[in-house]
Design a protein around this nucleic acid. Structure first.
Lengths: 341, 341
DNA sequence: AATCATTTCCAAAGCGCTTTGAATAAAATC
DNA sequence: GATTTTATTCAAAGCGCTTTGGAAATGATT
């Protein structure tokens, strides 16, 4: 069923039928209703590609996902972000286009999206050190929103980010206030911007409060469960082990917990733990009382906010950069307590 | 940059340029090279929508994802599946189109994909009891592959599935051989086909070996961490608690472990645990020696296999159903041991 | 009744590509 | 040297839609 058939059934021109369906004013309301009913009855929807060709818009948003496990992206956090963004797209009749590409092909993927005009905009995930994507997209003239920020990018651009620095600053202060002086940081890859900011927040407190920085208490890697387990296990063997641990992800924290349990130590009393909690649907931080004391910020909501911002930029046709800095909650759970003397 | 511009730059007709780029034989090799070089130089790629309109193909595969947390889909397993499928799509110049929709809109989403002709095929995730999607897609004539199977669907269709029944049958036997008689099953939602099959495998062993089925040892819900924790905690309070637990997911198993640890019991010696391990990138089941004894099957690989099957169906233009039943490995880890007397 | 403004509808052009059918040039055959 | 084949190239139609620039019909105004 296409426009031609539908309009001949209705005895109307394609013009009128098209206008009726797209809610243009210059069509009689009676006719409009008749047309819409017929469209429903014959299960007609305008062919995406033909419509796109005619309007010059694709009604789709692209997400380029590097395949490598070196990146933070094929991880559970991603599923929740995508779910949030996808909700917004659907609600606004947009499609979500995912490109899973090898790391080396990332730039090419963006160029191709732009050249083939297959999307109206893109979301950039997990900005890194010396990220070239922002500059590239500005050159390509493809509207975009960054989930996160790129510290060493001079140009202004639209982003949605969590206040990672303040978040970890507060968490570190909280631990210090409880008397902890040996505070470890189990961070994400510090080539990722968010991880750098978290480290900065952590280091700032040590500096402000005159605590010596111990590099053996700072580790940074891809945020897997195994990483959390291994590094915690190691640290607990130290002559002077940490009394508190700051962990960048729920996933990693699960490994941290496993290591602490394996040593027959108690979280909260023997070792305090604060995590960053993205509020993952499938890995909730407890029900009423949080399991872990946490800096909390919903990545699902972040997905929604990014998508809304991007759609607004596209429809307003206003490329002037927008920003949204989300603050985290510091929610106290059962995993922190005063330092043991 | 479009075809018209490019061909006028080259002093050739659009026909020739198009044919050169699409590797048609009726074009001089010298010309082809000249054309391809120019295309690269001017960063030309054919407009997706125009190409699609002309060819009648979208070069995209759709995935419809119901939003509700009642379903198993916005979960970490999904991220790995998508990554696997996406790899295959990229390699074959296809795009992946994600539709995140409310549960009630699922059917409409498929109809719309078909009517708008925006994809060449779809993957169906997580078939359920009385799943209507298979029938619907057959009516719509949209090629598809099901990840999983639908027990109560009479019609034949293409699927890729794990041998869930045999998998849990073997796992249950393994526990029984170790002397366990009180074996609990912490399963996914049993409205989901895979969960039903796992239960069947489990129940078959009890029947075969003359063990009384205890309904209080069988629970079924969405596979979250919290679910695993709560139910394990409850069961461990029983007068006659389980000595072994079969868990349908790594995520749930993390909660199970938390509950066992909280009781100061030891996994492997006090309580044996076998999980189903999807080999999630971010939640590996240990490095060399598995943490959990597990029935193992990579969901990432399943994504690849589904995608390959679907692309083959589309390009061979052969709708005759194909099947792929994947067997799991039963890998012994540190979480199982002989029953304590 | 004549004029003008509104409302409602339509024919046709155009979006950027592929593909059919034909034309031209070069090579091969007689 | 005339004719047929083969190798290259091209003009134009068509994919299914939107949108421009009328045209026809209706209603309001003089």
């Amino acid at each position: 069923m296409n426009l031609k058939e539908l309009s001949s059934i209705l005895g109307l021109s394609q013009t009128t039928v098209s206008r009726a369906l797209n809610n243009y004013p210059e069509v009689n309301e009676t006719t409009r209703i008749r047309v819409k009913d017929a469209a429903t009855a014959h299960n007609y929807s305008a062919n995406t590609r033909a419509k796109g060709l005619a309007t010059g818009r694709s009604m789709a948003i692209g997400h380029v996902i590097p395949i490598s496990t070196q990146h933070e992206i094929v991880n559970p956090v991603f599923a929740d972000f995508i779910a949030g963004a996808g909700e917004v797209y659907s609600r606004n009749d947009h499609d979500m286009l995912l490109s899973v590409v090898a790391d080396s092909d990332e730039e090419r993927a963006y160029r191709s999206l732009a050249a083939k005009a297959s999307v109206d905009g893109v979301i950039i995930h997990g900005p890194r050190e010396n990220d070239t994507r922002i500059k590239l997209l500005q050159e390509l003239g493809l509207p975009f929103v960054v989930h996160g920020r790129a510290s060493d990018e001079a140009a202004d651009y639209s982003w949605v980010d969590v206040n990672n620095r303040r978040s970890f600053h507060r968490a570190t202060e909280f631990l210090h206030d409880l008397g902890h002086r040996r505070i470890a940081l189990i961070n994400g890859l510090e080539s990722m911007d968010f991880a750098r900011r978290r480290r900065d927040g952590y280091l700032a407190v040590l500096l402000e409060r005159g605590i010596r920085v111990d590099p053996t208490l700072m580790v940074s890697e891809e945020m897997t469960e195994g990483f959390g387990f291994r590094r915690t296990q190691e640290m607990l063997q130290f002559a002077n082990p940490p009394s508190a641990i700051l962990v960048s992800s729920m996933i990693t924290a699960i490994g941290v917990r496993r290591a602490i349990d394996a040593e027959n130590l108690n979280i909260g009393s023997d070792v305090s733990v604060i995590i960053h909690d993205d509020e993952l649907s499938y890995l909730r931080n407890g029900e009423d009382i949080p399991i872990f004391t946490a800096t909390r910020s919903s990545v699902h909501a972040a997905g929604r906010i990014c998508a809304e911002m991007l759609l607004a930029i596209i429809s307003d046709n206003d490329q002037s950069p927008r920003h949204n800095l989300l603050e985290t909650d510091l929610t106290v759970g059962q995993s922190t307590g005063p330092v043991r003397r």
